[in-house]
Design a protein around this nucleic acid. Sequence first.
DNA 1: GGCATGCTTCGGCCGGGGCCGAAGCATCCG
DNA 2: CGGATGCTTCGGCCCCGGCCGAAGCATGCC
Lengths: 239, 239
Amino acid sequence: MSNMVSGNTVAEVARLIGDVARANILSALMGGQALTAGELAHHAGVTPQTTSGHLARLAEAELVKVEKQGRHRYYRLASADVAQALHALMTVAAGGPKRHRPIGPRDAALRLARTCYDHMAGRLAVALADGLRANGHVILTDGAGLVTDTGRRLLCDFGVALDDGAKGRRPLCRTCLDWSERRPHLAGRLGAALLDRALDLGWVHRATDSRALRLSPAGERGFSSAFGLPPGWRDAPAA
Amino acid sequence: MSNMVSGNTVAEVARLIGDVARANILSALMGGQALTAGELAHHAGVTPQTTSGHLARLAEAELVKVEKQGRHRYYRLASADVAQALHALMTVAAGGPKRHRPIGPRDAALRLARTCYDHMAGRLAVALADGLRANGHVILTDGAGLVTDTGRRLLCDFGVALDDGAKGRRPLCRTCLDWSERRPHLAGRLGAALLDRALDLGWVHRATDSRALRLSPAGERGFSSAFGLPPGWRDAPAA
DNA sequence: GGCATGCTTCGGCCGGGGCCGAAGCATCCG
DNA sequence: CGGATGCTTCGGCCCCGGCCGAAGCATGCC
């Protein structure tokens, strides 16, 4: 009877996620792109009118944000907090690091590079994190990371403004367990900024129909020279 | 239609949490202690037989673990992953750092020191984190922390074995946003070890009926001399 | 043994909510 | 302007699952 109050609202949020159609909608939005109601209906596997109801409830609870544009409505996750909660639920759902089921993206392109909410994932992202760590630009601890002075300089040269202004308090550098690689990659403001900048530079391009990222030749060269990707980073992990 | 598979199991987990009674049960277990089915029924606000059904489902899904002892059954959260997922959901439920509603534990004792799953929370825990950080024993980044060499030595002297053996891969040092203080305190293996050791030393004692921790005079002296609590740490935060 | 306590299983009630078809607005196009 | 497209609202169906009372096992105590 002690803390029923907080339990209540927790239940409301969890209940919203606890429906297959809505969970599919939210999972689709974990890709980081804004999607239209119709696309989400397709992902959810239910009719548009049903989806519309779900989206209204999700928006009401501020789990997603909506943006009108012409006769489309674009939906996206409302905040990184929501993405993190979904991530945590996926971790629990996967049964912890228990079953080493070789699921994860089976598509080779997805394994190589993809988006994860607002940052990069896949072998490329893991290799980037490894390279930055090996060169002492970041220090990765459990769940988060610290950008060193040399790293700050490097990233500034690369063109990402770390901008420590305590705006919004979105964590600067977080690590995120890569589904396919089972090793950490970079998330947080830093991870998001890296993806933004890489897209700007044309080093990676979004696939139109999936979360995959295509690495351009320029990106291949650029990432290697800028961040020192370890040799053979494209290969499957030893384990 | 792409990733419906993972969405499915995410939905199952979230659905389990998405019931008021079950959410209350899990919230109660966030205290870190194992509780009997009867106590949980009380927390949930439903009859024992209803609670029994809920607990069976939670155990089936491995969100909680059960341990028979005489004619009692003690339940606890199954893993730190579950605690983290609940924490993330609470964060979303609280509406992010949006509404600064002065909720949080209203009881003064709870504000001062309490348990949070398996580690300490409240002003004491925040002050401990501050002290360790101020003296360069840990470096706190967003969501995690790094124990320095001096910190490692200090903690070893204090009697906690950090034991880097990659056993279980439970993160060593994490930070956790304190509900009442809105500032980070220490969690992870380190946070759990600190609570254990403090209980062993008799520096804090568990209250019988709540998550509150009572700080003993020895603890007051001990924490101050060992970790350098900032002066006036008992006072309400400036904000 | 007899009885209390703690927990579970069974059966039945009933309300919430997920689903779709049909129809209603909005927007863009020619 | 009329028609196509995208999305929403409305109405009604139906089933899932949360709830409790009663009864059934276990355990412990006298």
